[in-house]
Simulated assay, not measured.
Amino acid sequence: MNTPELLFSVFIGIAAVQLLYWLLIFPRFSFKKPHETQRADLLPPVSVIVVGRNEAENFKKYLPTILHQDYPNFEVIAVNDMSSDDSIDVLEEMQKEHDHLRIVRVPENDHFWHGKKYGLALGIKAAQNEHLLLTDADCYPSSPDWIREMISGFMGGKEIVLGYGDVIKTKGVVNALSRFETVQTALQYFAWNFWGMPYMGVGRNLAYRKSLWFEQNGFIKHIHVPSGDDDLFVNSAAKRGKVGVVAKDTAHTLTESKETWKEWITQKRRHFSTSTLYKPHHKFVLATFAASIFWFWFFFAMALPFVDEFHMYIMLGVVGLRTIAQWVVGFTTSRFLGNADLVLLWPVYEMIWVLTGGYLLILNKVLGTSKKWK
């Protein structure tokens, strides 16, 4: 086999991996029918838990959108995690008007746990209900039906419900990349759940049973990691067939994106630090997808100048088929996740996403990761 034939063969092999994802794996989610909303008389009591450190302004802006949800029976547990601002004053003032708001304080002397997990653990232990719904202090629900929609995901004996945490659309490249990364990540963990391989969720919009948390001994399996209260918990606790997905636009949470490259890179470094602790087969599947994107374009560029006309048309056809598949999956996925404006430039965004991911993995390896939460 000469060099052009070898390059062409390698390209086709990698293209087959990519087409497997875009023609088989991802459509399992993108063509899915929306879940049904549970009847009001069957909705269980819910504890919504929000943990914040120095989040006074966000508590003022966003907590009322949770307190005013259209749901028959729920409590909101706001965990003030050793804040040095006036968070506790804001929460206590709100509590006067909302008797279903409960405040949990993390004592100042409890420094032996770094990260969000200790505050979240105190909130979970204080919860009065079996069904827990988690979000962050800098997030707000997309509709008054957020709790109702997310809790409907427990139908059929589910133990965990994966939701979608969207990013508010603004101007700029950082915002576009942040939204793309959010959509791409959600597309993967939603789709793989339908293939029987739940591997992560996001703490901005995640629900699970309190009894499951205790069965897992809380966060003890990854207590040494500052982050991972969401994805590492799901990665270790999720069972095949026991994880529901709720992606309707009325069940999203929304947050602002980082404004600068430095802030975005810092956030992504923290996220990447937990993915190295996933189960081996999860890491293999995720790494294969990301790496195959890079090598797909690498071998396309390497082989195209050397192959004959017949093989060139095959290569261009494969690229065209993959691009069309991305557009179809992207636009069908936007029924649930929005951000349709990103779809046409999907191949460009994905290459930036892959290159950035490789850079962050190397950076984390060399510099290590932060041991603090905020």
Rank of each mutant, 00 (worst) to 15 (best):
Lys117Ile: 15
Lys117Phe: 02
Tyr118Val: 10
Tyr118Asp: 15
Gly119His: 02
Gly119Lys: 05
Leu120Gln: 11
Leu120Lys: 06
Ala121Asn: 11
Leu122Ile: 09
Leu122Lys: 09
Gly123Met: 06
Gly123Tyr: 05
Lys125Asn: 11
Lys125Met: 13
Lys125Ser: 02
Lys125Phe: 06
Lys125Val: 07
Lys125Glu: 04
Lys125Arg: 14
Ala126Ser: 14
Ala126Asn: 02
Gln128Lys: 10
Asn129Cys: 02
Glu130Ser: 09
Glu130Gln: 06
His131Tyr: 13
His131Asn: 08
Leu132Glu: 12
Leu132His: 13
Leu133Thr: 00
Thr135Leu: 08
Thr135Arg: 07
Thr135Tyr: 11
Thr135Lys: 09
Thr135Met: 07
Asp136Ala: 13
Ala137Ile: 03
Asp138Arg: 14
Cys139Asp: 08
Tyr140Val: 01
Tyr140Asp: 03
Pro141Ser: 02
Pro141Gln: 03
Ser142Val: 00
Ser142Phe: 05
Ser143Gly: 01
Ser143Thr: 07
Ser143Asp: 06
Pro144Phe: 00
Pro144Asn: 13
Pro144Glu: 02
Pro144Thr: 02
Pro144Ile: 00
Asp145Lys: 06
Asp145Trp: 03
Trp146Cys: 08
Ile147Lys: 01
Ile147Ala: 13
Ile147Arg: 01
Arg148Lys: 14
Arg148Ser: 14
Glu149Phe: 07
Glu149Trp: 13
Glu149Met: 09
Met150Ile: 11
Ile151His: 11
Ile151Ala: 03
Ile151Trp: 08
Ile151Lys: 06
Ser152Tyr: 05
Gly153Gln: 03
Gly153Asn: 05
Phe154Asn: 04
Phe154Asp: 11
Met155Ile: 12
Met155His: 06
Met155Val: 06
Gly156Met: 01
Gly157Cys: 06
Lys158Ala: 07
Ile160Ser: 00
Val161Thr: 12
Val161Arg: 03
Leu162Ile: 11
Gly163Met: 01
Gly163Ser: 12
Gly163Glu: 06
Tyr164Arg: 00
Tyr164Lys: 03
Asp166Leu: 00
Asp166Lys: 02
Asp166Ser: 07
Ile168Ala: 12
Ile168Lys: 12
Thr170Ser: 15
Lys171Glu: 15
Gly172Pro: 03
Val173Gly: 01
Val173Asn: 02
Val174Asn: 04
Val174Cys: 14
Asn175Glu: 03
Asn175His: 13
Asn175Val: 07
Ala176Asn: 15
Leu177Gln: 15
Leu177Asp: 13
Ser178Cys: 08
Arg179Leu: 08
Arg179Val: 00
Phe180His: 15
Thr182Met: 08
Val183Arg: 09
Val183Leu: 12
Gln184Asn: 15
